[in-house]
Amino acid sequence: MKKLFFLCVAGIAFTLGTIGIFVPFLPTTGFYLLTSFCLLRSSEKHYNQFVQSKYYQSYVVDLLINKNISTKGMVRMFLLMGVVFALPIVIVSAAWLKWMLFGIYLAHVIGLTWYFKFHPKKKVVVKRVFSDKA
């Protein structure tokens, strides 16, 4: 029953997300994220396959949970963020908005540097999504 519910919600979310590509007021990304969430919850096999994939292990577990990032990786991350923030800074004409965007970028650099390099690492307990069948 639970599997069927998640599959139905995933189908509806995928349909709405696809319609959202063409209709401006529907949030495509949100519906696609809901689709992936529901599909992963509908099948233990797919969940385990996703969690054990090399991309999940390198980008989620290694980076966000274990906080293993090299200085070169951080510099590359901040350069890419700089490009993303520089585009609106160049386009916008209001000086106060340029300074605000620069301040937000600087806050990201300071906050992420503190988080990845100085924030204490926690022992993370992996929680099982699927319970053992009784």
Rank of each mutant, 00 (worst) to 15 (best):
residue 67 K to I: 06
residue 63 L to W: 13
residue 7 L to N: 08
residue 132 D to Q: 13
residue 12 I to H: 02
residue 129 V to Q: 05
residue 50 F to Y: 09
residue 73 G to Q: 11
residue 39 L to N: 02
residue 133 K to S: 15
residue 14 F to Y: 03
residue 86 A to C: 05
residue 19 I to G: 00
residue 52 Q to T: 14
residue 12 I to L: 11
residue 57 Q to G: 11
residue 17 G to A: 02
residue 90 V to F: 14
residue 81 M to Q: 05
residue 12 I to K: 02
residue 95 A to H: 11
residue 18 T to A: 09
residue 100 M to H: 08
residue 92 V to R: 05
residue 89 I to F: 02
residue 18 T to I: 08
residue 105 Y to G: 01
residue 62 D to G: 10
residue 85 F to C: 04
residue 104 I to R: 01
residue 86 A to E: 07
residue 56 Y to Q: 06
residue 105 Y to W: 05
residue 128 R to D: 15
residue 96 W to D: 14
residue 100 M to T: 12
residue 33 L to R: 10
residue 72 K to S: 11
residue 7 L to E: 03
residue 16 L to T: 04
residue 108 H to Y: 12
residue 37 F to D: 08
residue 80 L to D: 03
residue 77 M to L: 10
residue 43 S to Y: 00
residue 109 V to L: 01
residue 40 L to R: 00
residue 73 G to N: 05
residue 81 M to G: 06
residue 53 S to C: 04
residue 67 K to S: 09
residue 90 V to P: 08
residue 79 L to I: 15
residue 87 L to C: 04
residue 47 Y to I: 04
residue 91 I to F: 14
residue 32 Y to R: 03
residue 108 H to N: 10
residue 62 D to S: 15
residue 84 V to I: 14
residue 132 D to W: 06
residue 92 V to L: 14
residue 124 V to F: 15
residue 1 M to N: 05
residue 119 H to Q: 13
residue 59 Y to V: 07
residue 4 L to A: 13
residue 64 L to P: 02
residue 96 W to H: 12
residue 45 K to F: 14
residue 51 V to P: 06
residue 26 L to N: 01
residue 99 W to L: 14
residue 52 Q to L: 11
residue 45 K to H: 10
residue 7 L to M: 07
residue 47 Y to M: 10
residue 32 Y to K: 02
residue 95 A to C: 11
residue 5 F to Q: 09
residue 129 V to A: 07
residue 20 G to L: 02
residue 42 S to L: 00
residue 126 V to P: 08
residue 72 K to W: 07
residue 46 H to E: 13
residue 123 K to W: 07
residue 38 C to Q: 04
residue 84 V to T: 07
residue 50 F to L: 02
residue 18 T to D: 06
residue 57 Q to N: 13
residue 61 V to F: 10
residue 24 P to L: 02
residue 75 V to G: 07
residue 35 T to S: 13
residue 29 T to K: 14
residue 46 H to M: 11
residue 132 D to Y: 07
residue 109 V to P: 00
residue 61 V to Y: 11
residue 23 V to H: 03
residue 99 W to R: 08
residue 8 C to W: 08
residue 23 V to T: 02
residue 107 A to R: 03
residue 51 V to Y: 15
residue 120 P to H: 06
residue 5 F to C: 07
residue 131 S to A: 15
residue 30 G to L: 07
residue 114 W to I: 05
residue 55 Y to L: 15
residue 89 I to P: 03
